[in-house]
Amino acid sequence: MTRRIALWDSAFARRVLPLVESAAEHTKLWWGIAVGMAAVGGYRGRKAAIAGLASMAAAELVSNAVCKPLYERRRPPQRLIPHEDVHERPDSSSFPSGHTAAAVGFTAAVAGTWPWMGALCSVPAVMVATERIHRGAHYPSDVAAGAAIGLAGACLVHHAPCLLLRRLLPG
């Protein structure tokens, strides 16, 4: 599967995926979307932006600070990636994909607050996940694990206020 995705050679892949990777680096893409939602979306936009950023932070924490140190996994071998983008891979563990965790965490939390904006955010989120495999930074299982972590982060952010209120106001 890694090789099949890496073999995808189209004008779209050559032009758009590097731009997506650059925008997603250090979560710039998601911060930019959050600022835009907060600026033009009114109360719902601000609420969605906060939920997205909180979920993204939780997903990044779990994937990068907890899972990567526990699960040392090498990046896919260069022989599986038939294009020149392989040389710029990170040195950290391949498992899980932190980019995907952040993308899915942000998108899922936004969707829980503002569904149509979550649907719009799903397009770059899928592109980020695809790009991570296409460039040889991750195996598909790394991306799937990152997506699961992102969904868990969104679920936590969605349910945390209720759980806190139950704790603070028993009975």
Rank of each mutant, 00 (worst) to 15 (best):
A147L: 09
H87L: 06
S55L: 02
S141A: 11
E60P: 03
M56S: 05
G41W: 03
V86E: 12
A38C: 06
D142Y: 09
G45N: 10
T107I: 10
W116F: 13
A51H: 08
V110L: 13
G146T: 02
P140C: 02
G52F: 05
H99F: 02
A65D: 11
A39F: 13
S63R: 07
T113P: 02
Y43W: 10
T130D: 07
G36N: 04
I133Q: 13
V40T: 15
P77T: 14
C67I: 14
R75F: 12
E60H: 12
V62P: 01
M37S: 11
A102I: 06
W116H: 14
Y43K: 10
V126H: 09
E72F: 13
A102E: 14
A102D: 06
R79T: 13
G112A: 08
L80Y: 09
V123S: 11
P90W: 09
A111V: 07
R46G: 13
G98A: 07
C67N: 12
V62C: 02
P76N: 10
M117I: 08
D85R: 13
A102F: 03
T100L: 07
G52L: 06
T107F: 08
A54E: 14
V128H: 11
V66Y: 10
H138R: 05
P115V: 06
P77E: 15
G42F: 02
R44Q: 10
V128T: 03
A148K: 09
R73M: 04
P77S: 15
V126W: 11
L120E: 01
E84H: 07
P96S: 04
S122A: 15
L61N: 07
A49V: 00
R75N: 07
I81E: 03
A57G: 12
A148D: 03
R79D: 11
L70V: 02
A125M: 11
V128K: 08
P82S: 09
A119K: 05
H138T: 00
G52E: 11
W114R: 05
A144R: 06
A48K: 15
V62E: 00
T100I: 03
I81W: 10
V62L: 09
S94I: 03
S63A: 15
E60Q: 11
R75H: 08
G118L: 07
C67A: 15
V62A: 14
A125I: 10
A54T: 12
A51W: 08
E131W: 07
A51T: 00
L80D: 10
H138Y: 13
A102Q: 08
G45C: 10
R74V: 08
A65M: 09
P115D: 12
S97D: 03
T130L: 14
L120S: 00
D142Q: 12
R135E: 10
S63E: 04
P96L: 08
A48S: 13
M117H: 13
G112Y: 12
V62G: 00
A54F: 07
P76H: 15
V66E: 04
H99C: 01
A48R: 08
P76F: 11
A111Y: 13
Y71F: 15
G136A: 06
S55Y: 04
S141Q: 12
G118K: 13
P115W: 08
L80P: 04
G41H: 04
Y139E: 01
E131K: 09
M117C: 15
M117D: 05
W114F: 14
V40F: 12
G45E: 04
